[in-house]
Design a protein around this nucleic acid. Sequence first.
DNA 1: TCTGGGGTCCTAGGACCC
DNA 2: TCTGGGGTCCTAGGACCC
Length: 437
Amino acid sequence: MQRSGALFSVRFVSSDVMFALVDVNNFYASCEAVFDISLRNKPLVVLSNNDGCVIARSAEAKALGIQMTEPWHQVRARHPQLIHRSSNYELYADMSARVMTILSAAAPSSECYSIDEIFLDIRNVPDRMQLANTVRSRVREWIGLPVCVGIGCTKTRAKLANRVAKKRPQFGGVFDLEALTPAELSELMREIDVGDVWGVGSRLKARLEVLGIRTALDLRNADSEWIRSHSSVVLQRTAAELRGIACIPLELTAPVRKQLVVSRSFGSEVDRYDALRESVLSYVSRAAEKLRTEGLLARRMQIFIHTNSFRDDRAQYSAEFSLKMPVATDDTLALANAAEYALRRIFREGFLYQKAGTMLSELTPAAQRQHALFVDPTQIERRSRLNATLDKINQLYGRDTVRVAGSGVERTWSMRRSQVSPRYTTRWSDLAVARAR
DNA sequence: TCTGGGGTCCTAGGACCC
DNA sequence: TCTGGGGTCCTAGGACCC
């Protein structure tokens, strides 16, 4: 590849790559409809935690004009008959794993980019269209989920192609951007809004429009240095990718996690310290469990709480407290103690709290554990066996069977999930057959 | 009444060092 | 009168993604 002087700050990958981006259509809504046939071909929305806002829509719901992240109470007022489901992440995660197993087997290497998307490396595939059609029908037949495939010589172009495959049904769910003539490609990019390019969000779109960049074509044709001076290297890279210069490589191994967040809005607002403490301790327990599952230790812990910023009739308060653990740890009780200390530091009487959470950072692999100088190693060993037992019991009998006492029994703050579907694929008791009886 | 949760990267500016 | 310059590290904030 010839390096262009104008692009000195953008790293290239290689000139002979080809990507297929496979993506499940309306993933959460489609998962729900796999098991409940009464939902098929109906307007259906899936809601965020607390049934707060819309996070997935079936094709029919999209046709009604329902937007992503629209508050549910507003949508329901407009469409009283609309079918809705609370989000069921246990189901979606399991369905995702099944889809990814099938798709990653279809190419020599791949990158799971999100819960419902995967990039396949198809540079040496002789017939790209055949591969795309094969994986499409395979996922449909074996899992029951519809997918679309976009093909491009950069990730950004594959994303664009995937978008075309989804929006224009005449292409049968597969679109190869690299099969177009230069004139056709320009024409297509002229029809695509710059905000629909991967990497251009709402803020950037607004700024670019002021500068006269309105379509994907405008961005592709813009001078690289001009983009750099008016925006950043990130957008410069996106524009290069649109031109067919691959800058974003396939990540073959999952990048090392840098932080871990567990936070939730409350089902109803909380003013008592005890209730806040219960919620914080339960989130910290969950975070510690995740650490152990992933074989990580955390050195820094942050606790945060805040009131509902949408309410202008109440005084607002938000605070966070961050502390460094004496040694990096994955111990539920050690983290819970630290969390209580942090919460006491930031709690203020007289506010209605809406959300709390914890963030663990400065993560290191558990294999590199550094012990404290004056702590008896057998005590650490005992504590680690206790945590392992905790995890085993909770895995066997359901989350929170055994938990930190302070995390609550009543749990008045817990989420609203009025319409949550069964965990069809991960709980024997929820199996579709068992339920039919 | 009701407004998600969990991530990453880049940049600018301040602190600090020699 | 004139008050360095270059480097690193950290943090907060802004932007993006799904």
